[in-house]
Measured scan of single mutants.
Amino acid sequence: MPSETPQAEVGPTGCPHRSGPHSAKGSLEKGSPEDKEAKEPLWIRPDAPSRCTWQLGRPASESPHHHTAPAKSPKILPDILKKIGDTPMVRINKIGKKFGLKCELLAKCEFFNAGGSVKDRISLRMIEDAERDGTLKPGDTIIEPTSGNTGIGLALAAAVRGYRCIIVMPEKMSSEKVDVLRALGAEIVRTPTNARFDSPESHVGVAWRLKNEIPNSHILDQYRNASNPLAHYDTTADEILQQCDGKLDMLVASVGTGGTITGIARKLKEKCPGCRIIGVDPEGSILAEPEELNQTEQTTYEVEGIGYDFIPTVLDRTVVDKWFKSNDEEAFTFARMLIAQEGLLCGGSAGSTVAVAVKAAQELQEGQRCVVILPDSVRNYMTKFLSDRWMLQKGFLKEEDLTEKKPWWWHLRVQELGLSAPLTVLPTITCGHTIEILREKGFDQAPVVDEAGVILGMVTLGNMLSSLLAGKVQPSDQVGKVIYKQFKQIRLTDTLGRLSHILEMDHFALVV
């Protein structure tokens, strides 16, 4: 994948999101292997301009796509893939009243899908469409860049269908997702969380590099694949309309690839034109409109599966009536509230959605109805927002919020430890010299600072030695090549209790 991002070429006709291997024109390309080798690009942008032909009021008969309808489940399912879809609609009884809503608040519980998330729908649909058009064949390999849930859905379907599955996901995604993927037989590649989507090191860039190296491999490409919004247009939206008897006044959905909100909203605009569509985008993402909503100094966020630093091709923002931004604290607070007060075992993005819903639905009156999409299960986040310690460490809970008995030293300040200034190293000294210094002084790690004293990161003896043994660096290389740029900081005025929580999850903390 090139470091400079080429513009994806656009073909003359058809839909841009065809499933299957992508040609340089962004659509299915038939021909000899030699032709494909000559024409197939190194990668295709996940934010390529959409060429979708959908228009409100256009006859369904003019759609270029294969459409399906929700099917009634048999008493005995032939395999677990038949437990994807037909998820329950559940009334939220307490939270709406707590925040003064007059309307009825309903939750579409997508964590009841077989793999635990709304992404099971698009995973199965992308595979079925690729099999139907002859792209996927027995023994082929599926590769997908994902925040985890699409990966789980694909790995689940691949396990049943017999495909090899490789999932490329950023490091910030939970260990629970990784464990589930491994249990399903998927191979996992992790990428830096802070890598831009168009960087060769991003999950998108690495996935395309693997595709170019592995024979008979395919990126189904949830960011561009029409099967993504079509899955929701054909099934999720129809289920909502049936469950609500066609009567709903507002739908609120958090947005990642945009397939969920695009597919549902398009069908609702056709069948229930008075329904307002509300999009939820986390602070630090750029999906919301108008652009002024996205202006923030924050560039990272903890909530998973929603928000991006690019506009995915499948996201149709014209069908969203209003956007709201959400933050991590309210997302996790509301997710825990949904679990504790409503018994809905949902993930953090569901918290984002409901946090926005109780604001947006203030305009609705008694007798009206708001539906929220709860995308995934708490299963993926047992060591994250479900953990009091994690919430404390991230600053989303305060010590006084917890009532468990603490040891005698818990409320003492870090400054009472009488710490001395640490050994520091410059980023320009060599790895070999740094190892000598650390061994001589008896230290395992040291902060790396520039000549102005600005902290650049941390270097550890173990990481340097393993990097040297693996051949990633040489003793003569500058130590700046092996620094940890993500590390926890703590102030002298913070409590030892807070430091204790940090050290339970990290090997060190830097006192500043």
Results as ranks from 00 to 15, higher is better:
211 K>N: 14
99 F>S: 12
216 N>Q: 08
112 F>S: 02
215 P>C: 00
272 C>D: 11
25 K>E: 10
109 C>R: 08
59 P>Q: 10
182 R>S: 07
53 T>V: 11
87 T>S: 07
268 L>H: 03
252 V>I: 13
231 A>T: 12
10 V>T: 12
112 F>K: 04
117 S>D: 04
181 L>C: 00
246 G>M: 08
183 A>L: 03
34 E>I: 05
110 E>Y: 01
59 P>R: 06
168 V>R: 04
192 P>N: 06
150 T>W: 00
268 L>D: 01
264 I>A: 02
228 N>S: 01
21 P>R: 06
20 G>I: 12
196 R>P: 10
238 D>S: 14
35 D>C: 03
116 G>C: 13
93 N>V: 04
216 N>V: 03
117 S>Q: 05
26 G>F: 10
51 R>M: 06
267 K>C: 14
48 A>F: 09
14 G>H: 12
199 S>F: 06
91 R>T: 11
208 W>L: 05
47 D>S: 07
233 Y>D: 05
137 K>I: 10
49 P>I: 08
158 A>S: 07
243 Q>D: 14
231 A>I: 07
139 G>N: 07
201 E>D: 14
167 I>V: 04
43 W>A: 11
46 P>E: 04
215 P>H: 12
50 S>M: 03
34 E>C: 03
99 F>Q: 08
216 N>D: 11
57 G>H: 09
246 G>L: 05
82 K>N: 15
148 G>M: 01
255 V>W: 03
240 I>E: 01
19 S>C: 06
37 E>D: 12
183 A>W: 02
30 K>C: 03
52 C>H: 04
76 I>F: 06
195 A>E: 08
87 T>E: 00
67 H>S: 14
265 A>H: 04
160 V>P: 02
181 L>R: 00
3 S>C: 11
189 V>T: 07
127 I>Q: 06
273 P>T: 05
184 L>P: 01
129 D>N: 10
47 D>C: 03
146 T>M: 02
50 S>C: 02
252 V>Y: 10
93 N>I: 01
112 F>D: 02
155 A>F: 04
94 K>Y: 11
31 G>A: 11
113 N>L: 00
48 A>D: 11
202 S>I: 02
147 S>L: 00
198 D>L: 08
253 A>E: 07
249 D>R: 07
95 I>H: 02
228 N>A: 04
210 L>T: 07
189 V>C: 08
101 L>N: 01
